[in-house]
Nucleic acid binder design. Structure first.
Lengths: 171, 171
DNA sequence: CCATAATGGTTACATCCGTAACTATCGAAA
DNA sequence: TTTCGATAGTTACGGATGTAACCATTATGG
């Protein structure tokens, strides 16, 4: 029974497997926002974050959508160049800028939301009810397991403050 | 009950969530092979693939470890530079090279295996038995769901020929 | 009030990555 | 045998990324 102990089976190695799956899914979804609007992933996340939350600071955006601050900075710069968002200075603290989508930005967001939901729906549709439940449980569990491991600060590795269990939208 | 339908909740959006988790895990594990041997991910996968399978061609390596052929090419070049692997021409087909680890490469591999296993073990240890089961089921299910979607060929998106269900090593 | 540290955000640089184009070889068909 | 298309692998090039250094501003502590 004892598995060979000096060999690692890459195909079943959790970090590899998880990354590979995520990469496939993410790459496939990237086609949607790339083909449609020529967005990079950080740009898509920025659009999505602002669409969801309204005005935010760059810092808040980075925390909400798990992006390194340089990614945020660049994504914001690009969306600003497109006139999809505007910055407005904070009255109290002049280091801070509040970001918000313009009409054009909002339009792009509104265009993307149904596509994103459809993508997720179609992916989940290929998984049966039971396994979908397992997926939710599993994601929650791994997330919880990671949040025990403070990933030596700074950012990008922020497990986003635990505000209770997350659910994969069903159906 | 009806969720707001013009807003996407990024934190629960499957592609985002999956990618973010995988990124955290992968990044954390990357510290192991990076700190220890200064390897990149493609280099680690190459080492791992060759350690696991013995001699392989670059093409087989790419399929086994889900890497684009340019990544394989570069990783192999670097490991060769370190004298961790050698190439030997195929007798029948002179386009093909067979790759194999040298003593030094094998030593590095043997050094990494226990670390990789320990990393996985410690991560899984933070997840209870039941959720671990759910994780296995979920990964299998998503993998299966993806293999329905032929990701327009070429490579990198190869869902590795389905040789039966995979299991996350338990314990 | 001043010095120092912390914070929000940007930028420079080196590296990594994917697309596409390339070389070399092989197989098949004429 | 010649030609043409596929295949193994490399490379050139532009774009994306992370680290670290940076600027400006604000908080802290004497």
């Amino acid at each position: 029974m004892a598995r060979q102990d000096d060999i690692l089976e890459l195909e079943t190695f959790l970090p590899y497997r998880l990354y590979h799956l995520a990469d496939l899914v993410s790459r496939e979804f990237a086609r949607v926002y790339k083909d449609r609007h020529g967005l990079t992933r950080p740009e898509w996340r920025t659009l999505s974050g602002l669409g969801q939350c309204g005005a935010m600071t760059a810092k808040a955006l980075g925390e909400q959508s798990a992006m390194h601050k340089t990614k945020v900075s660049r994504a914001v710069a690009e969306l600003e160049r497109r006139r999809w968002l505007t910055r407005s200075p904070d009255e109290k603290d002049r280091r801070v800028e509040h970001l918000a989508l313009t009409k054009a930005g909002l339009a792009a967001y509104r265009d993307m939301v149904p596509l994103a939901k459809a993508f997720e729906r179609e992916l989940l549709a290929r998984i049966n009810e039971l396994d979908r439940g397992a997926l939710t449980v599993a994601l929650d569990a791994v997330e919880a397991a990671l949040s025990f491991t403070p990933p030596d600060a700074d950012n990008e590795g922020v497990a986003a403050g635990d505000d209770g269990r997350r659910r994969v939208r069903q159906g």
